[in-house]
Design a protein around this nucleic acid. Structure first.
Lengths: 188, 188
DNA sequence: CTTGTTTTTTGCCTTATGGCAAAAAACGGA
DNA sequence: TCCGTTTTTTGCCATAAGGCAAAAAACAAG
């Protein structure tokens, strides 16, 4: 819980009474491996600050193929950004790849805190913007890379994830086949 | 000019006096083909609503190779988002691929309007968020596509651009070689 | 621990794209 | 309009990655 408050305060200060308000309006939640935190087609009504575990955020293309967009682990938010912000049905789903615990903030409480805590809107909008930019830069940077380079970059950026999730999931994220990933890792 | 106001008002209303204020604090600018609107390494101090023409937004990787991130044409903003928002040196540069005209809003006037026009912060933050999300989705969607599919998607999304800029620039954006692009277009 | 299931690895071949070099075409300035 | 320059096209071959199928390894449930 302190970690979440610390993240907020790294952006803008929050009064002690407001901190209490934030704590009162969030709750700790556990999601088992394989369970979904957010469903495709439904409006995403909560965002969760991950304390432990790894989620995958997945999109389905026109052919019905799934593609992992990114992994969300400790210190980041599990949320279908577009859906949560615009209150539209989510085009992506979020599923736990390991047992996960997170601090959940529902849309209702979110709107309450938005009004009650002075810096809250700016803090959240800042976090959302930073998260989106990060995701964009990652995709963008890997866009022109070959399989080996993409894999190296993932290892650099999220080393802890590699050990915890099936290789096939990593391949999906990198946009390569599991065969290719297996061959890349053999050589190393 | 009306187009810019209309865009703003499609998000939230603005009073007539505030519209005048916006008009007074922006100016029309022309950028010749090949000229830069924003330099790499310098802080991006303005954002421009494109009235006519096409810009490219370019990043340089660790090896010094240039990669076009996206094209910005009529109805969109030319701005190095990260640099403008965080007042950090820009990692990308913006260059006109055709003669361009735009409505420029400098960071100083931007901050002035932020205070003076009630809905301005929300409007701008909404526009920025939408723009970034769009760019992310485009990259993300094309991430797993083969060359032909990526090209088709570009033709669908920004058909007007294809006719106006050199093919080599399109290839750079798609992350393929000019040779491959040439071969793709031959078959069509 | 054992057994059935899932995931990963590997051989083998196919396909897509890269990239050099030269020709062809398009462009642009005098 | 002409000529030099730049861009695009194309033949040819090299390389990266895809993908099937079978073996090997890892995992999971009883």
């Amino acid at each position: 819980m302190d970690r979440l408050i610390a993240l907020f305060e790294s952006i803008l200060p929050i009064s002690d009474s407001d901190k209490v308000l934030i704590i009162q309006n969030t709750y700790k939640e556990t999601v088992e491996k394989g369970e979904k935190y957010c469903e495709q087609g439904q409006t995403c009504k909560k965002m969760g600050f991950v304390l432990e575990g790894v989620f995958k955020v997945v999109r389905t293309n026109a052919n019905g193929d799934d593609f992992i967009q990114y992994f969300t682990n400790e210190g980041h938010f599990a949320v279908a950004l577009e859906s949560f912000t615009n209150k539209t049905p989510s085009e992506e789903y979020i599923e736990a790849l390991t047992k996960c615990t997170l601090i959940t903030l529902t849309i209702g409480k979110y709107e309450l805190l938005e009004k009650a805590v002075p810096n809250f809107p700016k803090i959240i909008s800042r976090i959302k913007e930073k998260a989106l930019l990060e995701k964009y830069l990652l995709k963008s940077e890997m866009f022109v890379d070959d399989a080996q380079t993409k894999y190296n970059k993932l290892v650099q950026r999220q080393p802890s994830i590699i050990q915890r999730i099936p290789q096939s999931q990593i391949a999906s994220f990198l946009g390569i086949t599991p065969y290719t990933l297996s061959r890349i890792r053999r050589v190393k």
